[in-house]
């Protein structure tokens, strides 16, 4: 028994640098200069999940992305982790796609490559974080899917069981294959790449498809094909005029207690939470 597995990844600006992101005052575009582009962190959990399935059951792992040509570097990293093949969907016509148009393009890309028993994605991207592409992709492919998967177990070639995280708990499901799972960080611990992996990755196939290579409805792709359209962008005004408490620890804490009382906390009572009910 073996599985044909696809993993969809997204190159994103490194989230540890988001404090540096600014909006260009004139062009009103996002400036992300000097921020490295990495594989979306939770997408590495998706790659790991695919590799573990392959190691246990046998099969092949294809990693795919719709991104600018520079994404080749990110795909090579996925190959270095252990994926067998990579596919880059890249075309200016894809630019500005919302989740609807992105998921459609990915679906057509996957159909072009072949049939997949299992598709893995991360739950959400660090930059846009809509978390909508996995569910929409499964919808275009007309296959079962589960989002926010914290754990899964393949029962046999036809079925798997998986847990979808919800607020304060989870729901357990049985899914018929082919299926798409959007995995969360808890699902596993992604492996690191090794020197050996990086060497091997250089020789693995990396195929590029443009819009003309795919069977696409041109009205469904890019910004033009997107039902949602972007309007203004702005930086939220978060600043507060803070007051610093200074002095020795005792003095600071004494002032802090005053401030808490002024905010309405009743510190004498065990029910300090009776805020604003005085």
């Amino acid at each position: 028994m073996s599985f044909n597995i696809a993993v969809c990844i997204k190159p994103v600006p490194d989230p540890s640098h988001y404090d540096k992101i600014t909006i260009h005052p004139v062009n009103k575009t996002i400036t992300r200069e000097g921020i490295p582009t990495i594989i979306n962190p939770v997408d590495k959990n998706a790659i790991e999940a695919a590799l573990q399935v392959k190691e246990k059951w046998g099969g092949k792992v294809t990693v795919i992305t719709m991104a600018p040509p520079s994404a080749e570097e990110n795909l090579r990293e996925a190959l270095a982790m252990g994926a067998d093949e990579a596919v880059l969907l890249t075309d200016r016509a894809f630019a500005g796609a919302d989740t609807w148009a992105t998921s459609y393009t990915l679906a057509q890309g996957l159909k072009k490559i072949g049939h997949f028993d299992l598709i893995f994605t991360g739950t959400e991207s660090a930059d846009g974080a809509t978390s909508q592409v996995p569910a929409q992709l499964a919808q275009w492919l007309k296959i079962a899917h589960l989002w926010n998967v914290q754990q899964f177990k393949i029962t046999n070639k036809e079925e798997l069981q998986a847990q979808m995280k919800i607020e304060n708990g989870y729901i357990e499901y049985a899914l018929k294959l082919p299926a798409l799972l959007a995995v969360s960080r808890e699902c596993n611990k992604p492996r690191y790449t090794t020197i050996m992996g990086v060497m091997k990755a250089k020789k693995k196939p990396l195929i590029t498809y443009t819009a003309d290579d795919l069977d696409l409805n041109k009205d469904f792709i890019g910004l033009k094909g997107s039902p949602t359209q972007p309007g203004d962008i702005y930086t939220p005004e978060l600043g507060r005029k803070g007051q610093e408490l200074t002095g020795e620890v005792e003095e600071i804490v004494a002032q802090l207690i005053q401030k808490l009382r002024a905010a309405g906390l009743n510190l004498e009572s065990w029910n300090a939470c009776a805020v604003g009910r005085e």
């Binding site: 600006p13 989230p15 988001y18 404090d19 992101i21 909006i23 996002i30 660090a126 930059d127 846009g128 974080a129 039902p227 949602t228 359209q229 972007p230 309007g231 203004d232 962008i233 702005y234 930086t235 939220p236």
Partner: peptide
């Protein structure tokens, strides 16, 4: 919100 809330954007349909 995008980029962890650093940027807000208007979305229309």
């Amino acid at each position: 919100p995008a980029f962890g809330g650093k940027v807000l954007g208007d979305i229309l349909c």
